[in-house]
Design a protein around this nucleic acid. Structure first.
Length: 947
RNA sequence: GCGCGCUUAGCUCAGUGGUAGAGCACUGCUUUUACACAGCAGGGGUCCAAGGUUCAAAUCCUUGAGCGCGCACCA
């Protein structure tokens, strides 16, 4: 017997094979467990959503820890007979992924996202995300995670998009989402707004300047950012500050380094008398605190810094450069220049070195510039009523919360606090509850819009005519205005006008094909095109790929340029430049703008009327497209002329819906912004379980994904790293609360960060990353799991040491050999001699069995208390130092010299103790335990044995 | 500034009122119905410091030191 089994356990061969076996069994899916009678239909539920890893790259050892931790809980509960579900998925991680791809792009092709354009750039990001996803899934499986892959989700897929759109609409209706002009964190490097929680602070040395705006202003102020002071509209002092009392309420007109300012002196409680001069220059546009103060005192707001962190004010005129000196200057340079001016004019009173925390974008490292911007926000202070329950279960009116009454009006802040305070959600380790409450205290409205491309597009449309917003989930029809691809004359820079025989270049054809690919799945009903060659070719390519009908409409032709057609563009500009810009005038033989406008004016109306519910592609030329759009936007004809024309093959997407309630316009343009990635991941616990598609119909107790929401939500456990307590955990509570009226999970167990032997965080930039796949091949996934779990109290950081992995690899060999030994002693005619363990008369054996039962009880308790490290250590210790070192050694004599029935009794004891030990070890080391178990019970799966 | 965590064997860390623990490393011995990725035996700790509570403190309390972290911000 023993000879057939090698003395070493081959984890590299075994682990993938065993995982395959589990997957094939289908028992990661609770529906199958119920179907096969492994768990009862009405058994208790244990459900958990995997915190979806970002598709920004591959997994590191920290993910392995997170997965192992959850898998222990999942396997334990499954063996305890619960209907256990663990839902996998990945996160598109909007800004992180986009930043990663853009960085690579700049490095390899020296292009940024704007050079590539939205469509092409997104294609690259999606390719990258797909590749990451595939590696990630392979890694997760390699670690043995028993996830129900049939329910795999992605935060950017279609069901999750529906969830995002539905949530946005619902929250808007509840008054929890609004669009407003507020000071936000602008990341000049990423060119997007970021939320407060994506900002980190770095300590740097800074100069702290004390000065007066001008000689005739009575109060000195201090700042580390003098360049923002050109945007000051007030000086704030403490109401009880005797020094300044006499100035409060007065307004001064001052000239600050050549910039005229109107400064009102105000009194505000938040000003500290003892700091600096006790007076604070208020810059409402470029400081969160000042903005809030400005709101209280109704101060005007002057923006003086732009999105590229350059100055937006003039200052004195610089004759040498022929422009106002500050205009367009970088903030740092402006600071130096202003300080120098103050010094020259004797206004600078003090200059001190201070340590200052500056705000930095967590993702891009850009120094955050507070700017006033029109963005979408979640209002955390607005009262609302929990919406009607999606399932008509139990009492409590509209609320399924234990701690919130039905019909009660509550703010999101209060809701988030209440459910944790009341213990409805329990956060472990407990110290994080305090951290959580503290965060809520300081919480501001959550900015959810981002100026990046990769993500869920915000489902808000603005009327082209008047800008009125319209939030809805589906449009009646869409129009795509497309300029033709590059033509021969475009390339050669020759005036085309209405000339015949000017086909697309190879590049132009490729452009048209790209557009066609993009429109392929848009259900295009009709292509309407100018009949000129370059449009015709473009339209035909689009029609072919989309399967739409084409009609040609002469009225969509380019403006006629008469005798200038065929002329080099430069020459035309020289001769007819003025005429080209004139509304009424025209080149001989050509058309005036007025005439062009006239022939286009009917086009919109006609096609709107004739093809009411169709998605239409309109292929035309630069000038006509500008006029069409200009008309929709109600722009003056003369202004349209000076608008830049779209690029070759550029697509403008519009939706058509019921006429605007303000201006009766039909055309709407979608908000170009996307959602904060956390907006979609905040719905993870329920968007993965069928919300909103099955929100109304899900039925508890029935199998199938369409009933998941009723069966598995709220989830039982959430186990992310503590670093995303605010970013994610808190927001899941928020979203589940206002959208479902219930908690997303009953318990949160936060784990620490895995660090390297030096205590440093693993990161790609530090180059200390360890590929879990490499380690798994070397020592086995089981060994990695044990090394990560044992020796780390839940919630503490893990210092990762490869030596420990090696130690647990040795343990799996030990276990393997225990099994080998036991098996080698299996009597051929076991049955005949078996007396049954419960009837054993051997006192020592009885004691062995009792000891095992005690160990089992204690391990069960540890696991239930999420003390996995203690449970793992205990079973490890039992197997090695009790079962192997003591019990087996003691039985050897019997096995060698005993009679047949004694041998059988010894064997039965050892087999029992071993198999029970395998069960207890299985959640921690699933592979080797399953492999060994099958040597004893070839027709069974340890994974679903009863604990 | 407010808050949190850590400080235990050479290293990495468990233990949280009842005679100090694990892994790795170290020393010596041992091929024995499995396992040398093993067994047996062993060395190594004033449990950061000081004070307090207690019959009893690594464990609870107070103060302090060093390291690390979070939040807020001084404008």
């Amino acid at each position: 017997m023993a000879q057939e089994i090698p003395s070493r356990y081959d984890h590299k061969e075994s682990e993938p094979r065993i995982y395959n076996l589990w997957e094939k069994s289908g028992y990661f899916n609770p529906d199958n467990c119920v179907k096969d009678g492994i768990v009862k239909k009405d058994a208790e539920v244990f459900s958990i959503a995997l915190p979806p890893p970002n598709v920004t790259g591959t997994l590191h050892i920290g993910h392995a820890y997170e997965d192992a931790f959850q898998d222990i809980a999942v396997r334990f509960n499954r063996m305890r007979g619960k209907r256990t579900i663990w839902v996998p998925g990945t996160d598109h991680a909007a800004i992180a992924t986009q930043a990663k791809v853009e960085k690579d792009l700049i490095k390899t092709e020296k292009k940024n996202r704007f050079d590539l354009g939205r469509e092409e750039f997104l294609r690259r990001v999606n390719d990258f995300a797909k590749a990451s996803h595939d590696v990630i899934v392979r890694q997760i499986k390699r670690m043995g995670a028993s996830l129900d892959w049939s329910r795999e989700a992605y935060t950017l897929d279609e069901p999750r998009n529906l969830a995002v759109r539905t949530a946005f609409k619902k929250m808007h209706d509840l008054g929890l989402v609004y669009r407003g002009n507020r000071v936000v964190n602008w990341d000049p490097k990423g060119q997007t707004v970021i939320s407060d929680d994506e900002v980190t602070h770095e300590e740097r040395k800074a100069k702290f300047y004390t000065f007066r705006y001008s000689k005739d202003f009575p109060i000195s102020i201090s700042t580390t950012r003098p360049e923002t002071k050109v945007g000051d509209t007030a000086v704030a002092v403490h109401p009880k500050d005797a020094r300044y009392k006499k100035f409060v309420g007065k307004t001064y007109e001052v000239n600050f380094v050549g910039v005229p300012l109107k400064i009102k002196v105000i009194a505000d409680e938040t000003v500290e008398k003892d700091f600096g001069t006790g007076a604070l220059g208020v810059t409402p546009a470029h400081s969160m605190i000042d903005w809030e103060m400005a709101q209280r005192h109704k101060l005007p707001l002057v923006q003086v810094i732009d999105e590229r962190a350059r100055m937006l004010v003039d200052g004195p005129f610089d004759a040498a450069q022929g422009k106002p000196i500050l205009q367009g200057m970088k903030t740092i340079e402006a600071r130096e220049w202003i300080v120098e001016e103050l010094r020259k004019n004797g206004l600078l009173e003090k200059e001190e070195e201070v340590a200052q925390n500056i705000s930095v974008s967590e993702r891009t490292g850009g120094v955050v510039e507070p700017l006033p911007k029109l963005q979408w926000f979640v209002n955390v202070n607005a009262k609302f009523q929990i919406p009607p329950a999606r399932r008509s279960l139990g009492a409590g009116g509209n609320s399924k919360f234990k701690s919130i009454k039905g019909g009660e009006k509550i703010t999101l802040k209060e809701l988030m606090r209440r459910v944790v305070e009341s213990g409805e959600i329990k956060i472990m380790p407990e110290r994080f509850e305090k951290v959580y409450f503290h965060w809520i205290e300081n919480l501001r409205d959550w900015c959810i819009s981002r100026q990046i491309w990769f993500g869920h597009r915000i489902p808000a449309w603005f009327c082209l005519g008047c800008g009125t917003e319209n939030i809805q989930q589906k449009s009646e029809a869409r129009w795509f205005l497309v300029r033709h691809g590059q033509s021969k004359f475009n390339k050669e820079k020759i005036s085309q006008g209405q000339m015949e025989g000017n086909p697309l270049t190879t590049e132009g054809i490729a452009q048209a094909e790209r557009v066609a690919d993009q429109l392929k799945n848009e259900n295009i009903g009709l292509v309407v095109s100018s009949d000129l060659e370059r449009c015709k070719m473009t339209a035909e390519i689009i029609a072919e790929k989309t399967g739409a009908k084409i009609i040609f409409d002469k009225r969509l032709r380019e403006r006629g340029l008469g005798i200038a057609e065929g002329m080099a563009r430069g020459e035309r500009e020289r001769i007819y430049g003025d005429i080209m810009k004139d509304y009424e005038n025209k080149i001989p033989g050509g058309e005036s703008w007025q005439e062009l406008e006239k022939r286009l004016s009917e086009v919109l109306v006609d096609h709107l009327k004739d093809h009411e519910h169709k998605n239409i592609v309109v292929v035309s030329h630069g000038a006509p497209i500008n006029f069409l759009v200009g008309k929709m936007k109600n722009i003056q004809s003369r202004e349209i002329i000076s608008q830049p024309i779209p690029k070759n093959s550029e697509v403008l997407e519009l939706i058509i819906t019921e006429p605007c309630r303000k201006c009766s316009g039909h055309f709407y343009e979608q908000d170009p912004d996307t959602f904060d990635t956390w907006f979609s991941s905040a719905m993870w616990t329920f968007s993965t379980l069928g919300w909103p598609a099955f929100a109304e119909t899900a039925t508890a107790g029935k199998p199938g994904p369409e009933n998941d929401l009723a069966n598995y939500h709220p989830t039982s456990l959430m186990a992310p790293g503590y670093e995303i307590l605010f970013l994610w955990v808190a927001r899941m509570i928020l979203m589940s609360g206002c959208l479902l009226g219930e908690i997303p999970f009953r318990r949160v167990v936060l784990h620490g960060i895995v660090r390297d032997a030096q205590g440093k965080k693993f990161s790609k930039s530090a180059g200390n990353g360890i590929d879990p796949l490499f380690l798994a091949d070397k020592y086995g996934a089981d060994a990695i799991r044990m090394a990560l779990i044992v020796g780390t109290a839940t919630g503490n950081d893990v210092k990762f040491d490869e030596n420990r992995v090696k130690g647990y690899r040795n343990f799996s060999t030990k276990l393997w050999n225990i099994a080998r030994f036991v098996l080698s002693n299996k009597p051929a005619d076991l049955r005949r001699h078996e007396r049954g363990l419960t009837q054993t008369t051997n006192a020592e054996h009885k004691q062995n069995i009792e000891e095992l039962e005690n160990i089992k009880k204690s391990i069960t308790e540890h696991i239930e208390a999420f003390e996995f490290h203690l449970a793992a250590e205990k079973i490890y210790h039992y197997i090695w130092h009790t079962l192997a070192d003591k019990i087996i050694e003691a039985e050897k004599k019997n096995l060698k010299d005993g009679d047949a029935s004694q041998k059988a009794e010894s064997y039965a004891l050892l087999e029992h103790l071993l198999l029970e030990s395998l069960k207890m070890l299985h959640p921690f080391m699933p592979f080797v335990t399953e492999e060994i178990y099958r040597k004893f019970r070839p027709d069974r799966l340890l994974m679903v044995e009863k604990w």
